[in-house]
Amino acid sequence: MKVSVRFFALYRERAGVSQTEVDLPEGTTPKELLTRLRSSYSSLPLSDSVLIAVNSEYVNPEAPLHEGDEVAFIPPVSGGET
């Protein structure tokens, strides 16, 4: 199955791309995708506790992905100002 992966902010700069498409075995979870991305993009500072969104919603990283999903790894946020 194909899913698209979005990178933002620090992750976008480190990955060198803002979006990529990956071909994964059926049933792959976001957590497994994370492990895979760590080896493809060695300079990406993805921690185990990174927040993950699928189709614009935060998800459980153990819930399987589906064909056509858009997965985003969310760097620590800083919306607005203090």
Partner: peptide, 14 residues
């Protein structure tokens, strides 16, 4: 609302 914006809204500042 401010606290929530700072913690869950995916907007980043450089």
């Amino acid at each position: 609302a401010m606290d929530r914006i700072k913690s869950i809204v995916p907007i980043w500042k450089k």
